[in-house]
């Protein structure tokens, strides 16, 4: 099949196989407040491909939600500001786009599930109206068609008797059902990527299991990328493919899910894993990470974790550690693993 035609080197669509759906590069976010500048995010890098689940793990104030807001473009600016960084969605930098272009992506390509469904839904509009809004605004459907689609969606997220409940208001649903409606809303336009910000934190464990299963199933069905933001090490273990651990606005460790739990390469991750009580064991005393998460206005010099770290040396107080590629003892690279610790070797290999 050799022809003399000029090679049609049409670049593959940016989101071809292997290319990440979303890539965040060296993102910085700061907030200008009356009390000074708060550095919420200080250089975050991560990527998600289609069908992949990335869990972003961190405590409150670690910057995990702010990163998500920056990706969605729903950050309040001012006081927020993105002084540096790039967010590529299918190869296009969203931070360079016009508001108009971003709005087209938001909702139809990128969707978000919020933590507290009761406050994320409008209490004075029926859920059917709020779901239908997605179709009316983005696809220009009529009210009637939009409603039919809403019922279909509610069915898909397994809300019983969807037809009868489409005109109900958010307060008439239980917490788990409301979260299903949030998921339905995110799914409405079959986005490529869903960001779920603590989707089950407000729910009971039995309902939490239902919701996480539903999310995982829908993700497989639509081959979506999923960014799961959470502080719960347990939830992450169940669904994620890879994990990024955040601390004080930086990613301190990333790893495939199994490896992170088996062999953490950052003292913070190790401390977190040791400090949670286990259901299947009764230990003596819990390991506790000493001290408090840092104030983002005055992040400690060097490694932000150094005042709480048991391994901290002088170098930790002066030099900010970069994200090192983690290797085996013999130097073999561990794919997808990085640790922002000067002493990652000691941490992982003991």
């Amino acid at each position: 099949m050799t022809t003399n035609e000029t090679p049609a080197n049409v670049p593959e669509p940016a989101a071809g196989k292997g290319a990440p759906l979303l890539e965040v590069r060296d993102l910085h976010v700061e907030f200008h407040t009356r009390d000074g500048v708060v550095n919420a995010i200080n250089g975050v890098n991560y990527s998600v491909s289609a069908g992949e689940t990335l869990a972003v793990l961190g405590e409150s104030g670690s910057g995990k939600s702010v990163t998500a807001q920056a990706i969605m473009g729903i950050l309040d600016m001012p006081p927020g500001k993105i002084p540096k960084g790039e967010i590529f969605f299918r190869g296009d930098d969203m931070l360079r786009m016009s508001d108009e272009e971003r709005r087209k992506i938001r909702g139809s390509k990128l969707a978000m599930i919020f933590q507290d469904a009761l406050s994320a839904l409008n209490p004075v509009l029926s859920v059917g109206y709020q779901l239908g809004e997605m179709f009316r605004v983005h696809q220009g459907l009529s009210r009637k068609d939009a409603k039919a689609k809403s019922i279909e969606l509610m069915d898909r997220v397994r809300i019983p008797a969807a037809k009868a409940r489409v005109n109900d208001y958010p307060h008439q649903f239980s917490g788990g059902m409301r979260q299903r409606i949030m998921i339905a809303m995110a799914l409405a336009l079959e986005p490529d990527l869903i960001i779920a910000d603590e989707p089950t934190t407000a729910l009971d464990v039995t309902v939490q299991a239902q919701i996480m299963d539903l999310l995982a199933e829908l993700q497989r069905e639509y081959n979506m990328g999923l960014i799961l933001i959470t502080h719960d090490l347990g939830v992450v273990a169940d669904v994620a493919d890879k994990i990024a651990v955040m601390y004080a606005g930086r990613i301190v460790e990333n790893a495939p899910v199994h490896e992170l739990y088996k062999r953490p390469a950052h003292p913070y991750t190790r401390g977190l894993l040791d400090s949670i009580p286990r259901l299947d064991q009764k230990g003596q005393e819990l390991y506790a990470i000493k001290g408090l998460p840092p104030n983002l206005q005055h992040i400690p010099a060097g490694c932000a974790f150094n005042p709480r770290c048991t391994m901290a040396q002088d170098v930790c107080r002066t030099d900010v550690p970069v994200l090192h590629q983690v290797t085996e003892r013999d130097g073999a690279e561990l794919p997808g693993r990085g640790s922002a610790c000067h002493f990652w070797k000691e941490t992982i290999h003991g």
């Binding site: 299991a209 239902q210 719960d232 088996k262 299947d280």
Partner: peptide, 19 residues
């Protein structure tokens, strides 16, 4: 239903999901 922070321990567990 309690998520266990250990992917390997999890695989051996039976999960009962209430409806």
């Amino acid at each position: 239903a309690v998520p266990v922070p250990d992917p390997e321990a999890r695989e051996g567990r039976e999960r009962i999901i209430l409806t």
